[in-house]
């Protein structure tokens, strides 16, 4: 990995990745209300077990406490946030001002996303903004950082130096295009990638192989997305209801094959086996663990996945 192009965002995640260590990130969904303690409670399970934690931005288009506010609470709790920003809810003015504010208050990582369509969420009649798309957002944050310029071209006084993340879904159609899309995100300025939840390992191996062949994994850090299955029902739901998700039948069969009270542990076992393979996989630089509403299980998963202790930098 190219460690010369130092971004110097001051991000812990960046330090872990640039030092060549296998990164481990987590996820935290902000509450549907104003109780900061809900964030603190979840943060407790993540602290010390992950290098950074994604703070989701109105995920599935449902209104929640703003991502930057929950990111600040995470910082207070000693966690490094990876501030997610979607293109659905704000235009380029609001995005840039939130980036300035977030950086001023200590946010150092950003994940740039298009965002689930508003029709999925609790305000299906809302206007979807999509002033810019995720690739244009990546390019905008890079321009703000590297050129010190707003999208308009005017100068920023003390530009924000974000470590820039993007998402990649190796399982969405057309498969052949996914590597090209990854290349576009890298060209736009992505420093790291977090992938969609991986269940179809064979397809993911193929994707990484293509990315390696194109030299893309030399230019960007790739964190493989892992979400442990809690139940057979969840696996079925992910397979049939979540767009762009690829859950092979063998996963469902394996969960069905154990006693009911052992299904969740079997889901964790599958996830940990995946993590073991990712540690050895050329082109994969870490894992992004999305334990959705299962934050309290993160310590146990991290332990079983043998990713502890996490690196500390002075």
């Amino acid at each position: 990995m190219n460690t010369e192009t130092h971004v110097a965002s001051g991000s812990n995640l960046e330090k872990v990745l640039r030092s060549g260590q296998f990164a481990f990130t987590g996820e935290l969904g902000p509450p549907r209300g104003t109780n900061a303690d809900e964030v603190r409670e979840k943060a407790k399970f993540l602290k010390g077990n992950v290098d950074a934690v994604n703070i989701t931005d109105n995920q599935t288009a449902v209104v929640r406490m703003s991502s930057w506010a929950a990111s600040l609470i995470a910082i207070q709790e000693g966690l490094e946030p990876n501030y997610q920003m979607v293109c659905r809810d704000r235009n380029r003015l609001a995005m840039q001002s939130d980036i300035l504010g977030g950086y001023a208050l200590g946010i150092r990582n950003m994940l740039c996303l298009s965002g689930d369509h508003q029709q999925f969420g609790d305000h299906p009649d809302a206007m979807g903004v999509f002033d810019i798309d995720s690739i244009q957002l990546i390019a905008m944050v890079r321009q703000m950082r590297d050129e010190g310029l707003f999208l308009s071209g005017t100068e920023i006084h003390q530009p924000p130096k974000m470590f820039i993340g993007a998402a990649s879904n190796p399982f969405a159609d057309p498969f052949e295009w996914r590597v090209h899309r990854l290349a576009k995100k890298i060209e736009a300025g992505a420093n790291f990638i977090q992938t969609q939840c991986i269940y179809n390992m064979e397809k993911f191996r193929k994707f990484i192989h293509l990315a390696n062949e194109e030299g893309l994994t030399e230019k960007v850090f790739i964190l493989a997305g892992v979400t442990p299955m809690k139940s057979v029902g969840m696996a079925r739901y992910m397979k049939s209801k979540v767009p762009g998700m690829d859950v092979p039948d063998e996963i469902i069969d394996r969960l069905k094959g154990v006693e009911k009270e052992k299904v969740a542990q079997e889901g964790i076992n599958i996830a940990c086996e995946q993590i073991e393979e990712f540690k050895e996989m050329k082109g994969v630089h870490g894992v992004h663990l999305m334990a959705i509403e299962w934050e309290h299980m993160v310590p146990q998963i991290a332990e079983q996945a043998k990713v502890l202790p996490r690196p500390v930098f002075s």
Partner: peptide, 18 residues
């Protein structure tokens, strides 16, 4: 549905929109 200029997004579903 998102008016993206650099698509398709990760929500494309077997040739359909999310």
């Amino acid at each position: 549905a998102k008016g993206l200029l650099n698509g398709p997004c990760g929500g494309t579903n077997k040739g359909s929109c999310e």
